[in-house]
Design a protein around this nucleic acid. Structure first.
Lengths: 348, 348
DNA sequence: GGAAGATTTGTGAGCGCTAACAATACGTGT
DNA sequence: ACACGTATTGTTAGCGCTCACAAATCTTCC
């Protein structure tokens, strides 16, 4: 009969609870793990002891023997941006609901080295799976190379065929935006794009071009941006030179807001002279001057969705994954066009 | 001589490395922990074996015996908001630099129950310390009650005297904003405040009122807001009834942007008729229409700062903290006024 | 009433690692 | 050559938990 340390500064351990409840440590373990082979009365006694001692199981010991950390990792770049931070939130909520802890690794750069480092870091913590909020094509490639080492999904931007994940149908969103502007009567639509090597930027650009071509409209040169309001502003200054511009579709709301600012400064009125449409529907979009027409993404939903996918994979790849079932699962959410005052009929 | 499993799907463990390097597992441990009592040549051999096997130490086993998880927890509410997400990033960067992992717990509500739950959750993970990005007075109170159980600091809003933490001098920031408007020649300044039970909101309101009183100006009624652009918009509609309003100081940029929108809609021009100043300096502030005068906070810096404080406490409270040294350490950063086009001389 | 079965509990081993101590190797001065 | 101190390495014993299995208890039914 091992004497349990009753006092002292140390945390109580399982045998302490067992001693107090008058059972063996294994019975305590059974109660903790919800085993059905415990008499109700015994369970009560154990639970009472747990409560009295404020006992909390040692996760490290448990992880050591079960080889499961109950932890998922999240790699995120640019938590600064609206989308990523929203998705992180959605992921965390979903993980908690599923009984998992979340460990994060946020990166400044999306280069191969940083990506590998982040994955390593998370693997060192024995995470059971990783959700990645990455967007750069390069980062995706780096991740694809590591997919074998640990279950992984992408959230937000997806790279169908290489990595499983939950994403938004950016192309459809862009098409909807362009179609809306054409329907209003605009001859064509200009585009302020996101960085070349971002998947979302690419997809939105493709959608924009596709919609114009489908309607047999001229496809103007595409203006480069970097998601920031500043880059939108600069694009607008260039756009202002061309009197033919009547409609601009921006790859995100922040750039759209910069475009509005730039147009305004050069004497073009929105939406009287030029219509502007964004993408994302940030919370303040409805309260900008003018309120911004945009394409709404449900980032939170996306995070939840992605995590579900990840959990599924974690379950499957239990000991040795290898030849998984459907390796390239992807969940696609279709975004929604929100029409506000920044887009209107061309006013000639 | 225990035969090391050379193949198999299992991860290599320390004895595997030891066997390959021809040493004991303890020597491997020494190399891993940077012990000086290892011959350089031996160290090399061990490192080579580690590399060859792609061995990675089991954190659970290590945590079990050292009783240190190398993990810090972050509790955050509203990762959605600009400030919190920025601070989270700063915290993560600083933690990584210090060799700590970060586990997050984000909460939807700031009520007592949620706060306790989050702390429990993090404690279950055996985090060595917790950084809290909370703002509600109620949440602070709940935290203060748990401070004894684990080292804790607040980041962002601070509650001097109760919890240690890194914060911004919101009052000084507000004073600077108000003074700026008075200097421009405005008779008084109206205020759209944040939620009553947020510490930042309170401090900014106090600063606003104080500055007005210092200059012997009338203190108008304060308009309530909830940080959202929508609430700013609504406040503006109310403000519009009063022709005497020439300057508005908003407790954050999003509300300021809503105020601008509301004023614009009711025919008041910014800054010609009314000057508007915000707080935060969100990245797009400079590209709003008009560019927003605001008070800049260095959120990232703040996160770093707070984490440093936390690490300090973690070090100190090693086995049994109890009577700590300076229990109410606080780092205060002074924000900076950024003048842009949304504020100007009253145009009568 | 007692054997066969089901239910509930206890026992021992070991997950992979570090901490303490023991044991060796290496030099140095006498 | 010897003892002695110092570098370097090895040995043993857990950390707190779960797993596999053994033991004890309670049923049930002939």
């Amino acid at each position: 009969m091992s004497e349990a340390r009753t006092a002292g500064g140390t945390q109580p351990v399982m045998v302490d609870v067992a001693a107090l409840a008058g059972v063996s440590h294994q019975t305590v373990s059974r109660v903790l793990n919800g085993s059905p082979h415990v008499r109700a009365q015994t369970r009560e006694r154990v639970l009472a002891a747990i409560r009295k001692l404020d006992y909390r199981p040692n996760t490290a010991a448990r992880a050591l023997v079960t080889r499961r950390s109950q932890t998922l990792g999240v790699i995120s770049f640019d938590t600064t941006l609206y989308g990523p931070s929203q998705m992180l939130y959605g992921i965390e909520q979903a993980a908690r609901a599923a009984g998992y802890y979340i460990s994060i690794a946020s990166l400044r750069d999306q280069d191969t080295f940083s990506v590998h480092e982040a994955v390593d870091r998370l693997r060192d913590q024995a995470v059971e799976g990783i959700a990645v909020i990455a967007s750069r094509v390069s980062a995706m490639a780096a991740l694809a190379r590591q997919i074998a080492t640990v279950p992984m999904v992408t959230v937000g931007p997806t790279d169908p065929g290489r990595l499983p994940g939950a994403g938004v149908d950016n192309e459809a969103g862009a098409r909807a935006a362009v179609r809306h502007l054409l329907d209003l009567g605009h001859e064509t639509v200009h585009h302020v794009a996101g960085p070349d090597d971002w998947l979302e930027a690419k997809a939105r650009q493709v959608g924009w071009r596709g919609a114009l071509q489908d309607h047999g409209r001229p496809v103007p040169d595409c203006l480069p941006g970097d998601w920031s309001a500043r880059s939108g502003y600069q694009a607008a200054l260039r756009l202002a030179d061309d009197p033919g511009v009547t409609a601009v579709f921006c790859a995100n709301d922040h750039m759209a807001l910069g475009v509005v600012r730039g147009l305004h400064q050069t004497g073009r009125r929105v939406p009287r002279d030029v219509s502007v449409v964004g993408f994302d529907d940030i919370p303040e979009a409805a309260f900008l001057t003018p309120p911004l027409t945009t394409v709404r993404q449900h980032f939170g939903e996306l995070g939840r969705c992605g995590l579900e996918l990840l959990l599924h994979r974690v379950q499957f790849s239990a000991p040795t994954a290898a030849g998984d079932d459907s390796s390239h699962q992807v969940a696609i959410v279709t975004p929604e066009l929100i029409v506000r005052a920044s887009s209107a009929k061309p006013g000639r």
